[in-house]
Amino acid sequence: MTSLILKTAMRLIVPLTLLFAVYMALKGHNEPGGGFIGGLIASVSIALYRMTYGAESFDKLLPIHPRILVFVGLTMAFLVAVFPLLFDRPLLTSYEQYLNLGFGQTVHFVSAAIFDIGVLLVVIGVSVGMIDRLSREVEK
């Protein structure tokens, strides 16, 4: 597992896949993709990294307990969901806006995107957390 080629490759692959994951998550509204898929791709790459480099490097890559990821992700999703309640709208009512960036560019902002990011974080936290926890047991 810990061959040099793989290690070197992982150094390249991990950032790339993470970027790809974010890309997948963000474009998910219009093309195949989305929070789940993004999160899973990221998890796969982090998990591979974890298995290649072991616990210590992993702790450096992810210096927090995965439960923080889960917490933050779920909280994001929760806040997006609850936000409309403040305005007497049903839970999860989506909000969309075309933001004018100034030089002729507009960005289509959908509140569901934040929700999707929350999903992404939860998925990463859970799958990486599980794999990490079990790997530690194996390494013990």
């Binding site: 789940f36 998925v123 859970v126 799958s127 599980m130 926890r133 079990l134 047991e137």
Partner: peptide, 20 residues
């Protein structure tokens, strides 16, 4: 199905730990 897959994965992860 997507929902079901995700839930199935969650349960699977827990079940495996339970077995350990």
């Amino acid at each position: 199905i997507l929902t079901a897959i995700v839930i199935g994965f969650a349960v699977m992860g827990f079940l495996l730990t339970l077995i350990v």
